[in-house]
Structures are given as structure tokens and as C-alpha cells.
Simulated scan of single mutants.
Amino acid sequence: MGSQEERKRFVEMVRKSCHIAKKLKELGIRHGGVVRIDSASSPQNWAADPVNNTKLIAQTFREACDVADDYGEKLAAEGEICWGGMHSWKAMIDTLEAVNRPNIGFQADMAHTLLYLLGYNSPEDRILPADFEWKDRAIFEEGLKTLTSALRPWTIDFHVAQNDGTVHGTGSHDKTGRHCLATDPNGRLDIPNDAGYWLRDENGKLTKAFKHICWDGCMFPNEVMTQQQTWNEILSTMIKVRQLHGWYEAE
């Protein structure tokens, strides 16, 4: 969205990102991965004209895909409730389908996609019932199945993360899913188990849609990030995910 000049600048930033990615590959320190994008627009601005604004986002993303294709790169749209046209699971699918390019997909962040279940910025797309309580684990997992079955076919990048079911925004950044530490007692996700809904299909078979995963730990102050215990807990959680859903390939 935005003006023609702003959308042109967006595509140019994608080009620069792809150029950097190419250099990292040439140096031998990047063997895969994606280039992350978002709509850079709020749900409120998008809602002023949903149909035409989705078309505009899709047009801009298509131009970005064409640039990325020149570098052999794929673009991953990170679904967050703060980005217009990406603020709900249904809006996200509508946007991806409108782009209709083979080198674009979905970046699933466990913390952000949790808010899709609650319909925070799109109540009509809420998956969990309005009277849902977090103690109802079976209902929660059914919601995860619905969400992931719709978005998993699009998913080309995956962020392991924790969320306490609330939102957070800093400065001019719209509120989005709040990231928590891996072992936060208020975390709503059983991370190793719930990661499986993204990493395995409806029959429990590994999709192997991507070869690496990462921890997404934004929103933490520096004093937390510089503690060794923080990283011990993150790595321990990541290892548990790998033990449940990883695989080995020949060198």
C-alpha cells in the first residue's frame, strides 16, 4: 500500500536484501533461507478498502517477487496481526493467492500466529470460540489444526517462539503478538508439541518444506539477551523441537 513512490521504495529494499543474500551465498555462509516481507501498512488503513488494498499489496508483492526471482530468492510474508492484508489467517491467504507467484510463501511465527486463533484484529476470522479458556487444551489444539491446515501449504519458513496470548507494541509499531521467553510460565504454547502442527501434515508426516528453523526472540531487553541462562533455555527448547520433528540427511 502507500503511494507509488513508497511502493517503489519497498521493491528497491527487497532488491537490496536479495543482493545482500547473494553476497552471503557467495561467501559460503548462507546456504538457503528466504527474504522476509510484510505489507508495511496497518489493518486500519487496509480496512478502508479491503478489496482494492489487497490488490495493491498483491501488485507490489508481485513486483518484489520478480526482483527476487532474478536473484533466485523466495519471499516469505510473515503473518502478524499488525500488518494490513496479513492481519488474519484468511486475509493472509487471500493476499498470497492474489500474488500468485511461485517464489512467495508464508513465514509462520508461533508467537504471532497464536493471535490469529483469537481474531484480535479480525473478530470475524476468529477460530477459537468466544468463551474459550486456556485450560481447554483439546479445543486449543483443534484450533491449531484448523489454522495450520490452511496455512501450512504456504509455509516456507518457520520461527519457534512463545506467546502469553496478549499483544504488545512499542513506539509507532502497532500491537502484535507478544513474544515470551521459552520457559515463561505464562506461555500458552507447548512449544515442542505445537511446532509439530506446522512441521507435519495432517497425517503426521514431516513436510520437510524447509531445512532450518530459528528462534524468534524480539521484544526482550538487552539485559535479558545478555544472560547465558536465556540462551541455554532457548537452545534447550530448540533441541526438543528438533528431537520431535527433525531429520537427518546425507552430507
Rank of each mutant, 00 (worst) to 15 (best):
W198A: 12
T170A: 14
S3G: 11
N186V: 11
K205W: 11
G187L: 06
G84D: 07
I156F: 04
D131T: 01
S41T: 12
V99N: 04
A47R: 07
S236A: 15
V67N: 04
A76N: 00
H31S: 11
G196F: 03
A195S: 14
L96I: 02
G217K: 04
K175R: 14
T230V: 06
A195Q: 07
H173E: 13
A209D: 12
D201Y: 09
W154L: 03
Y120G: 02
E63F: 05
A182D: 04
H159F: 02
R62T: 06
V34K: 05
V241I: 03
P185L: 00
K208E: 12
L147V: 08
H87I: 08
K205C: 10
I29E: 03
A130G: 03
E124Q: 13
V241P: 07
G171R: 02
C218Y: 13
L118H: 04
L27S: 14
V14W: 13
D164F: 06
E78D: 01
E73A: 02
E97P: 02
Y116N: 05
S42M: 07
K55N: 12
D109A: 03
I213L: 10
V224H: 03
T230Q: 08
Y116F: 02
G2F: 12
Q59H: 10
K55Q: 11
E202R: 07
G72D: 02
T176P: 01
I191K: 05
E12F: 14
N163L: 02
K145G: 12
V167T: 14
R9H: 13
D38T: 09
L235I: 09
K175E: 12
A138Y: 08
A161Y: 10
T226M: 15
A111R: 03
T146C: 13
Q59Y: 03
P102D: 05
Q228I: 14
D49S: 11
P43I: 01
G72V: 03
G165F: 04
R188I: 04
M110H: 01
I213K: 09
S88W: 05
N222R: 11
A98C: 06
E97W: 08
W215T: 07
D201G: 05
C18L: 13
D66E: 12
A64K: 07
P43G: 03
G196S: 00
M1Q: 13
L144W: 00
E5V: 14
S122R: 06
R152L: 09
T60I: 02
G32D: 07
T183L: 15
W83L: 09
G84N: 01
W231A: 08
R7N: 15
F140S: 04
N100Q: 05
F220W: 13
T176W: 13
N232W: 06
N163C: 12
E202M: 00
G28V: 11
G2D: 12
K16N: 14
V224G: 06
T155C: 09
E6Q: 15
S172E: 11
I104V: 09
F10S: 12
G217T: 00
A108I: 00
R178P: 08
V167Q: 10
D66M: 08
F10D: 13
C214M: 11
